[in-house]
Design a binder for these strands. Structure first.
Length: 275
DNA sequence: ACCCAGGAGCTGC
DNA sequence: GCAGCTCATGGG
């Protein structure tokens, strides 16, 4: 099917934004996107026109939500005022096309625990290894094999040796522990919807290996809490450099997380940091 | 409040 | 080659 949109949707920008770790750019410029037991190949064939290798039914049931197409990003972006916050105005304008995906909560939680204190290629490497070793083998629409992200049970069932081969380093215990808690039912990444942001953050931080950064990444990218505001080394630099008197959370609420994403991507692009 | 270990891989020199 | 850094956290 074809999707025409006036709203922000820049596949390459999202793929390299650091919010998702399994998108793969294909030779023809299309993107391969694994998500739960599904996969999508999507390509921008002309400005604002995307070719998707699924039918409208699958798009409505899965991908519209995953890509968050029901949120109007171009209108949210307008909150950045050219005079009051020129830096954010530049950042949001320059990174127009960014969206916050609605990823699977379990995958997001595990992925962001793995992500701590590592660069993005290393994160992707570990995640792919985990999928290859414990994920379900599936086929995409072109007949190519790929591995789904494992279930908590499949991850928990991995031998220590197999899991160690995924190069998690000291995060090994964190992953083991979280998978065990989910399997025995004492923690449910899919049962957090009834909690407000602060309660959710606290609950996540009680997990071994989950601090404020990983917890807020889970809120923003795994639970689509658009106001969650992960502070990593780059955001720390931005806050110090551009907002010495404090970040205007009230202006960007309840979308602080999206504006964090704009600044993160824009500021890094200024330093030509490769993802 | 500070300070360090723990793993591995990419980057720049 | 080889430090220095990386979308941090737990523990001392």
């Amino acid at each position: 099917m074809f999707l025409n949109t006036d709203d922000d949707l820049n596949l390459s920008m999202i793929a390299y934004s650091g919010q998702c770790f399994r998108w793969r750019e294909l030779d023809d410029g299309a993107f391969f996107i694994p998500h739960a037991a599904h996969s999508l190949i999507i390509k921008e064939v002309s400005a604002g026109c995307f070719e998707l290798d699924c039918d409208e039914k699958e798009y409505d049931e899965i991908w519209r939500s995953y890509l968050d197409m029901d949120n109007d990003y171009s209108s949210i972006r307008k909150r950045a005022d050219r005079k009051k916050d020129p830096f954010m105005y530049e950042a949001a304008g320059s990174m127009c096309g960014m969206r916050i995906l609605r990823q699977d909560p379990f995958e997001a939680l595990i992925s962001f625990i793995i992500s701590q204190n590592r660069n993005i290629p290393a994160i992707k490497n570990s995640i792919e290894l985990i999928c290859e070793r414990s994920g379900q083998l599936l086929k995409d629409s072109r007949g190519n094999a790929f591995y789904a992200f494992p279930t908590a049970a499949a991850l928990h069932d991995m031998s220590d040796e197999a899991l160690k081969e995924c190069r998690l380093g000291y995060r090994f215990d964190y992953i083991k522990n979280t998978a065990a808690l989910i399997c025995d039912g004492s923690f449910d990444p899919y049962g957090l919807d009834t909690l407000d942001d602060d309660e959710c953050l606290e609950k996540l931080k009680s997990l071994y290996g989950v601090g404020p950064k990983v917890a807020s990444c889970m809120l923003l990218y795994g639970l689509h809490r658009m106001n969650a505001f992960p502070i990593d080394v780059w955001v720390k630099r931005i806050l110090k450099d551009k907002y010495p008197d404090g970040f205007p959370y009230d202006i960007y609420s309840p979308y602080c997380g999206l504006f964090q994403q704009y600044m993160f991507a824009y500021y890094r692009s200024l330093f030509s940091v490769r993802l």
